[in-house]
Nucleic acid binder design. Sequence first.
DNA 1: TCGGAACAGATTGTATACAATTTATACGTT
DNA 2: AACGTATAAATTGTATACAATCTGTTCCGA
Lengths: 219, 219
Amino acid sequence: MATDRASLSKVVSDQIRGQILDGTLRPGERLVEDRLSLELGVSRVPVREALLGLSMEGLVRLEPRRGATVTAITPELVAELVEVRTLLEALNARLAARRHDPRIVALLQDTLRRGNAASQSGTSEQLAHLNAEFHERLAEASRNSVLSDIMRSLRERTSLAFAANGRDRAREDWKEHAGILAAVIDGDEEIAALLASRHVQNAAAAFARAQNEADQAAD
Amino acid sequence: MATDRASLSKVVSDQIRGQILDGTLRPGERLVEDRLSLELGVSRVPVREALLGLSMEGLVRLEPRRGATVTAITPELVAELVEVRTLLEALNARLAARRHDPRIVALLQDTLRRGNAASQSGTSEQLAHLNAEFHERLAEASRNSVLSDIMRSLRERTSLAFAANGRDRAREDWKEHAGILAAVIDGDEEIAALLASRHVQNAAAAFARAQNEADQAAD
DNA sequence: TCGGAACAGATTGTATACAATTTATACGTT
DNA sequence: AACGTATAAATTGTATACAATCTGTTCCGA
């Protein structure tokens, strides 16, 4: 989608995106241009351009003359994201199974191996990174860059919500990843699509459960 | 997706987008910031922000220190866009049929009526506008803003390719629109999804035919 | 004490100015 | 004449400065 952005703006954009995704910047938090530019040691121009880009990715909310905030993840938004992402992950897995490019399959197997290891002993940062890597490579496997770009954006936005999903869920995640990859290698489009869509649904369900428990604990 | 953009940047963005979609700016054409800012009577800053936004919408290609060009529509890109759009239009129509909100249905019927009239006697600008309106309203009917935003972007990009589809195709278009709307009103999810996905495929096929004829004429 | 208007501070939107990089042109060498 | 290099023009990237708008606070009146 967005072709390469010029150096500084891109650096700033990556920086802010990283801080949003790893929770340093919390949903709802205001993003004041002056503060960010001071913090990152650049002028306001690259910061503005970064915020504009992030707003189009859906990570940031831009209100006309009132500035930027980290997007607040409402249950409604999560439902919408999951609805779309479920379908696109299914389509993507189907296409990946159809092409089953050996080179990309090898990369996926590598990521899978490391992901399995990390699901036992890794930090949550490592898990998040490997999860992103697996899905990124799986998205590449469909050989449809339009689809990959949309999916990346959806993943980032859902991960913003699902970040809190604990260690126990990680094991399940990687079991499901293994299943999807196996179907892709077999070239079984139907199974790949079904498993991929279930994978999203399961993650969403796990999130909803965690959400409920948190709500009850708050009573 | 992108929340409201501040006034001038938004005006500039709409201006340039309009010129791209109506063919004033041709695919591959360079978009020099200075020229645009002079032409539109604003400084380069809003122009840059507009170009960045358009690049994320996929209408403009931004290369690191070499400036912006109107996205060139390759056959491969069209194929990718059609692949994704087919699926999303189907999902959207399915959801629209599930909700079948009477208020939105009424709006769609209004657009359909005007579209049918225009397909007989309207200008191609009117046809393009009404087509966009029908799809925009249909997208709203799913009540999923994430989906609507993605679909709008895909539509703009495909319309960039399909713009040349002639008057004869317009009649077919509106017949198909009528069919989809009927299924939505009936609440028949399966038919709505099927017709919507065929609608995209048919438009793509018409485009491919026109393309072939043009190629043969060029020999 | 509460509500509201006026002011001050903070923040975004836009313009201008400068630096860095790329592209085009001209010139000299072989 | 062809190629490569140096120089100039054009263009993008970034910073700073100013204008417009919004937010919060203080002070006055009821």
